[in-house]
Design a protein around this nucleic acid. Structure first.
Lengths: 229, 229
DNA sequence: CCAAAAGTGTTAGGCTTACACCCATGA
DNA sequence: TCATGGGTGTAAGCCTAACACTTTTGG
């Protein structure tokens, strides 16, 4: 085989780190591999990039197939290309991070049903391939991103309390935050809309519900603002 | 041809945005293409990734071949994979940013000689392929990085004055900085060593020369510090 | 002695952090 | 009435930003 042809004995894939937030824990969606290599290992969902498909469309396709979600937060993080990362051949993989609301996810039934599951990110280990490394990298990216722009709202329901938001940030950053300072900071950014509604049926003083204001956010993004937590 | 085989009709490449700093301007190393497609266009140096080479080794190889430099600052930035970005076929390319000292660069003579040149980053336009987009992305990455960690020293000679450093930051960030505040900030980071030497042969008060202290930097990186300019 | 760039401190305002108690609800 | 989490303000310290003059050298 000619040297030139060699270049084409490789493939590229995408792998998707899909974050959700549930019961105060940051979760990641994993699939259980049914085949060799790494049979029965848990792995990040991914696929080869189709020959006639834009790179970015590949992780969108994977995510939609898996969860039914059509428009999602999706961010390319890093490309992993060690020579022997895939036992069956040369595969370079582009990692994507996405954020979804776990309640909107309808895990596809049938064949997938038993093999797709949410895992608390803190309890994940020994994934297939180099997926531990990819997950660690994406988790770190998320920590960085969340301190620079108000992503994270994608993980919550449409309306949420400030405590929900704080729980989320604490889960992502793996730290405790001061309640008063957190609220001051978030409200001063002027990206939340007070819905004038309250929580119902909770055994304590009900909290106000807020929505994320995409328009204000877009405006601030253009005109520059900071988002350090 | 089977569907499976289709996946292997693609290739991956790397493209290298090599920054230098000269005469107070931020520069980028470009090559002039000798062949179709985009014959006679200027382009970012790059190559296909060899089948038996780690991904990261590819941009190192390109850079060493082009400049003779063996160890360089090298950072993966983003992977570009639009379907038609390369007219001859499906090529996904991983962009890398590197920083070199222009004085250490020995542009390889012979065949390359006339076709490799430093360009002021502000004057570059109409590159081959999607290289304008790649360059813009990497320039923006550099602006971000330089405000979070003290990269940039790679662009200067081993010893430099605080004004050199300020000129560099101003070129990268495309802004003016306050001299007193800049000095206070940099010196307070405690990552410079005063060489106790002075500039020579300048027609004004000679400036102190400093060196970057890699050890202190590594220590601070581990123990956390911020680097906002 | 002139031109050129080096070098140097202070102040005001804004942001960050630390910290403790009362409130509204369901059980 | 108790348990639970919701909601609120202030003060100290730190960091940032604005700002102008003297020093040293070569020509």
């Amino acid at each position: 085989m000619s040297q030139q042809k060699q270049y084409f004995k490789s493939a590229f894939s995408v792998d998707n780190v899909i974050f959700g937030f549930d019961e105060r824990a940051l979760m990641v969606l994993l699939i259980k591999r049914g085949e060799q290599p790494y049979q029965n290992y848990w792995a990040l969902p991914g696929d080869l990039v189709y020959p006639e498909e834009d790179l970015r469309d590949a992780p969108m396709r994977v995510l939609t197939q898996l969860t039914g979600i059509e428009d999602m937060y999706l961010e390319q993080t890093k490309t992993f290309g060690k020579l022997n990362r895939h036992p069956s051949g040369r595969v370079i993989t582009v990692a994507y991070l996405s954020l979804v609301n776990v309640n909107q996810v309808k895990l596809v039934p049938s064949s997938f049903a038993n093999t797709v599951r949410w895992f608390p990110v803190k309890k994940i280990e020994s994934l297939a391939f180099d997926h531990d490394e990819i997950l660690a990298y994406c988790l770190n990216s998320l920590k960085q991103s969340v301190q620079q722009k108000p992503i994270g709202f994608e993980l919550l329901s449409e309306s949420f309390t400030l405590s929900d938001l704080q729980d989320l940030y604490e889960a992502i950053l793996d730290t405790k935050l001061d309640k008063r300072n957190f609220r001051k900071k978030i409200l001063s950014m002027d990206i939340l809309i007070d819905t004038d509604e309250l929580q119902k049926g909770v055994a304590h003083r009900p909290a106000r519900l807020y929505r994320f204001d995409q328009n204000k956010y877009d405006y601030l993004k253009q005109n520059g603002f900071s988002f350090g937590i």
